[in-house]
Nucleic acid binder design. Structure first.
Lengths: 163, 163
DNA sequence: ATCTATGCAAAGCTTTTGCAATCGT
DNA sequence: ACGATTGCAAAAGCTTTGCATAGAT
């Protein structure tokens, strides 16, 4: 079928990947904007749109991973390998979860309900230590910008306080 | 801790839930806008903001489920029980997956990496029959409005066509 | 030469919010 | 009464797109 475009190597693409690699070393999963801010240090004239485009291209190539599961903003992982993440519902932070494996895996099925299976997206949700430390209750401090999951609980969230 | 507000019963809330129930019977997982359009048939003057607010309230109560995993727009499930979904990366459609269970489950862990675990969000991604039928290649027809997962593959997507 | 990539600005889409009025308990 | 809820309109946030130019192969 469609073989797609022939990707080219550009300074911008290299710079984006390089930033992703640096984040990867710290096991941090940045948002597009965080990547943008960092790339700017090398290429001050790069545009945000270019960062968006390059992150998508790199993800399409399987060189990096787009963590699209949570609510926006999307985050990326420089490590394309199959591993489980956990996301903080308060601040949006994402961490790797070592030693946790989910079954069935994306390879255990090729069709379901008429769907041709591509993969499984799984991540745990919780509250990170940093957020837990800051008054369990109100404040939503250390990263207020990224509202992780609207207001109402996402998915199989809390429940409990029926009334 | 905070016991939260005392929810009240309103015509709008009832109507939203009733629409969700109807979708549930068909095992369809609507977007906020689809709920809005439907509720309008009963309450023509209801506002979109009210629908957003009510869907969140109902999800916070655990009466319905907010499927926040995929990319926007968010979809809802009138069935609050814990079950696995599969989402079409082409059109965004979501279906229930009977008989599939994911382990570990959200109850298998209470802490990870300093996180206090709330739950696990897991869903398969694939291409639905409808989309597969329409030229495997280009068209993105039957529900073009909802761009499911940006352009680049989400998560552990395709891979393969490295170059 | 051809087709991909870039920058910029504008637009798009989903979702949230401020506020005054209204409704539920 | 008290506080939750509603409508409306505006704003916000993230992401995509059109277009002319520059760049890669």
């Amino acid at each position: 079928m469609g073989s797609g475009p022939t990707y080219r190597r550009t300074r911008q693409r290299d710079a984006v990947l390089s930033v992703l690699d640096r984040f990867r070393a710290r096991r941090v999963h940045p948002t597009t904007d965080e990547v943008y801010v960092n790339v700017r240090r090398t290429l001050p004239r790069i545009s945000l749109a270019t960062v968006y485009r390059n992150l998508d291209v790199l993800a399409a190539q399987g060189i990096i991973q787009k963590l699209g599961m949570g609510c926006s903003p999307v985050r990326f992982d420089g490590d394309p390998s199959d591993h489980v993440h956990i996301r903080c519902v308060r601040c949006g932070r994402v961490d790797d979860l070592d030693g946790v494996h989910v079954t069935p895996s994306k390879d255990d099925a090729t069709t379901f309900n008429g769907y041709e299976v591509i993969g499984l997206r799984a991540e745990f949700v919780g509250v990170c230590d940093t957020c837990r430390m800051q008054h369990a209750g109100k404040s939503r401090t250390h990263n207020d910008a990224h509202r992780p999951c609207s207001s109402g609980g996402c998915h199989a969230a809390d429940q409990g306080n029926k009334n």
